[in-house]
């Protein structure tokens, strides 16, 4: 396993956002992380890459204990992050944004090499014509792609993708899924948080379901989606939920 998360607990005051969460991913695997709003998915990613220090538990990356390391130390070990709420470096150009991703991560590239990597990534995500545009001027869909581009430019071994598909149209979603499949072929591990069920069903190898910070199910997309506990967590009433899932269609 490239990443092992063992019993990670994060609290905000009285609220237990992650409650002894456990999961693992292997190289070339896409793990879906799903659960209702406020389940603690984003918080779990934050605990993995050092934004929050877990109260208990252990995060192991490629055999090394990285619990409690600072975010930049985690990034340098090869974990990249795309945010749910996009955070472009607004005054910098698109190319500079992505170069930042390439520069300081695992490979510690020089500026020239980083720029070349950035150009490739930008092209592969269809942002080439926006290369010199200030990132703040992009529209939302473009900002989402930029967010992913910056993460990918680091050539991570593990990508933490937080709802990168939200707000994209079906065509754009399909393109993004292709990107994820390519990453898988390259042996990159991905944890993707996603509310779009059909996307999860489509690309994820395994799925972990969180509810109130606890893991309530784990398995293949098919196993999980037919798990009554999951359906209940999502919609309260299992019958409504089952119907809803059918309509959404795998």
């Amino acid at each position: 396993m490239i990443l092992d998360v063992e019993g990670v607990t994060v609290r905000f005051g009285g609220l237990v956002a992650c409650d002894a969460a456990t999961l693992s991913v292997d190289q070339g695997q896409i793990l879906g992380l799903i659960g209702p709003n406020g389940a603690g998915k984003t918080t779990l990613l934050n605990a993995i890459n050092g934004v929050y220090r877990p109260l208990a538990g252990r995060v192991e990356f490629r055999g090394e204990d990285i619990t409690g390391l600072r975010p930049f130390q985690v990034a340098r070990r090869g974990i990249a992050r795309a945010h749910q709420v996009v955070r472009p470096l607004s005054d910098l150009s698109v190319i500079a944004n992505v170069t930042v991703g390439a520069c300081f991560g695992r490979e510690n590239l020089g500026l020239g090499a980083a720029r070349r990597v950035a150009q490739e990534v930008i092209a592969s995500l269809g942002l080439a014509d926006k290369s010199e545009t200030p990132a703040g001027k992009l529209n939302v869909a473009q900002k989402k792609r930029l967010e992913l581009a910056r993460a990918l430019a680091a050539r991570p071994m593990l990508l933490l993708a937080d709802e990168v598909l939200a707000g994209l149209n079906p065509q754009e979603v399909a393109e993004m899924l292709t990107v994820f499949r390519t990453l898988r072929e390259q042996g990159v591990a991905v944890i993707m948080i996603e509310h779009l069920m059909h996307a999860v069903m489509n690309v994820c190898d395994r799925v972990v379901v969180l509810d109130y910070g606890k893991k309530i199910a784990e398995g293949t997309p098919q196993q999980v989606s037919s798990d009554p506990k999951v359906i209940e967590a999502y919609l309260g009433d299992p019958k409504v939920a089952a119907k809803f899932l059918e309509e959404e269609g795998a």
Binding site: V51, F72, G105, R106
Partner: peptide, 13 residues
């Protein structure tokens, strides 16, 4: 300057 938290997440100290 643009976003210190993002800078930290891409590997900048």
């Amino acid at each position: 300057r643009e976003d210190q938290d993002v800078a930290m997440l891409v590997g900048i100290d």
